[in-house]
Design a protein around this nucleic acid. Structure first.
Lengths: 195, 195
DNA sequence: AAAAAACTTGCTTGATACGCAAGTTTGCTC
DNA sequence: GAGCAAACTTGCGTATCAAGCAAGTTTTTT
């Protein structure tokens, strides 16, 4: 690991807080969990929690944050010749396949987001900052981005919206339905605007 | 004003709190304003504020909430024969034209949303509940909504995203640019997916 | 090994939401 | 128009939370 001990300890602490938040929320329900309880479970002080996350919602959705970062990186690694929407779709499916089925707690988290408006709000905040990065990625691929800069942002917003709808819809599908299939479908429909 | 005195007083109080929140936020900046100050300015107790709004952010964005309600109603009042996306676009432009240029404080509010993540999060919460109503409206217009229920939700999400991007983009345009024009443009691009 | 930088922690302050139980206003009926 | 019930306002108390500050500790750097 290139990073020093300090950096490793920091991400360990952050991860521990995140996992404590997830575990406690699953066990007792989000609103029965206090920041103090999370800090205790992660073996740090209440104050240290605040050094890492601004709220328990943020701690809970740290996983989503990482997931989104992976997605942005995946888009970056797509072949440069690929048109923007295809790159977005490809990256999304790739990331989904890589760690989609491997984390059973993620589904629980997603369900929680639907029941708690505070979580949804938090989620959108993190998504919003990703939107800027995605917009930049799209611009660098699209020949038309010089003439119409708003188009790239529009595409990023549409992509995020389609992803969100796909995940939410998937929760109501019969068990066994592949999220990747629902995503592919939603992205294809939305993508009609950008081809 | 068919409602009784009680109802009228309630919306007067709500409006007074909202306007106090806007005025104080413009004057001192959002984070220098406390709920107590807002309540004082509106001549009600600190506790009463909490009976109306869950936070100062919610009070501040009450105008947006009303605006969105108008939009949903405008969609409802569109000719039944009009296809969904055309109804959405028409309603948006209609509402924009009706009260767009008339409220100078609204622009200040929108700029504030961009600077304060807490406001953005709040805004998304209110938008999310509108998305459900818009989805219902769309479904009732679309012949295909029976086969593909997710498509209506996708359209609603795309519509909201396009509106949001249009407003944000408009803020960076040279002064004098008509918001309606930017909106029309964004909605047209996005709409390509749904025709 | 010593100096510097970064991190943790307890303490404190300022704010906030919300339950509860009065007191007050409004709506409705006779 | 008198009175009752429901709805609303208010003050109080409790629990929760973010953030500044300063002292102590760990890691990095020189």
């Amino acid at each position: 690991m290139g990073a020093g001990l300090r950096e490793r300890k920091k991400s360990a602490t952050r991860q521990a807080l995140h996992e404590a938040a997830v575990a406690l929320s699953i066990k007792h329900g989000l609103d029965k969990v206090t920041v103090e309880a999370i800090a205790d479970a992660a073996e740090v002080s209440r104050r240290t929690f605040s050094n890492y996350f601004a709220s328990k919602e943020e701690a809970l959705l740290h996983g989503d944050q990482l997931r989104m970062r992976l997605l942005v990186d995946a888009v970056r690694d797509r072949p440069a010749a690929e048109p923007p929407w295809a790159a977005l779709t490809g990256a999304a499916l790739e990331v989904q396949q890589r760690l989609g089925a491997r984390d059973p707690r993620w589904v629980t988290q997603v369900r929680m987001v639907r029941r708690h408006p505070a979580l949804a709000a938090q989620q959108v905040s993190t998504y919003a900052s990703m939107e800027d990065e995605l917009t930049a990625q799209i611009s660098s691929r699209a020949p038309w981005s010089a003439q119409c800069p708003v188009r790239a942002r529009l595409m990023a917003a549409a992509f995020m919206a389609a992803m969100r709808v796909a995940v939410q819809d998937w929760l109501d599908r019969p068990p066994g339905t592949q999220l990747a299939d629902v995503m592919r479908e939603a992205l294809a429909e939305m993508g009609a605007a950008f081809r």
